[in-house]
């Protein structure tokens, strides 16, 4: 009974950095997380292209936003590539397993 009290207390403590939008009890699959990520990564590339067009159309508001958009797109691409590599590594590792 004591152990149950403690674990229930621990699970009821507010989680630091927990996603506020998640309904308690709902779990998102790896596929959902992956898809959301590729959506976000795609958006950074899109934002960068929009930023490029706004610069050459004379619509840019300042210079740092243009540079930041480029950097974010670069980071998102690198992250995507790394994730892809890791997924492939995990896949080949699993395929290598002897049943």
């Amino acid at each position: 009974m004591n152990i149950n009290n403690i674990t229930s207390q621990i699970s009821n403590m507010p989680k630091v950095g927990a996603d506020q939008n998640k309904i308690v009890g709902e779990t998102s699959s790896f596929k959902d997380v992956l898809f959301k990520f590729t959506e976000d990564a795609n958006k950074t590339d899109y934002d960068d292209k929009i930023s490029n067009l706004s610069v050459l159309l004379g619509d840019a508001e300042n210079t740092h936003q243009a540079m930041i958009a480029a950097e974010k797109a670069d980071l998102a691409l690198r992250l995507t590539i790394q994730i892809r590599n890791k997924i492939i590594d995990a896949y080949t590792e699993v395929m290598r397993m002897q049943i």
């Binding site: 990520f37 950074t44 740092h64 936003q65 930041i68």
Partner: peptide, 21 residues
């Protein structure tokens, strides 16, 4: 995931916008 990665730099971005203005 990406939103969290760029959350901190977001503050710097806002400060940059203010400084530009």
């Amino acid at each position: 995931m990406l939103k969290n990665i760029f959350m901190h730099s977001g503050y710097l971005e806002k400060a940059l916008d203010a400084s530009w203005l």
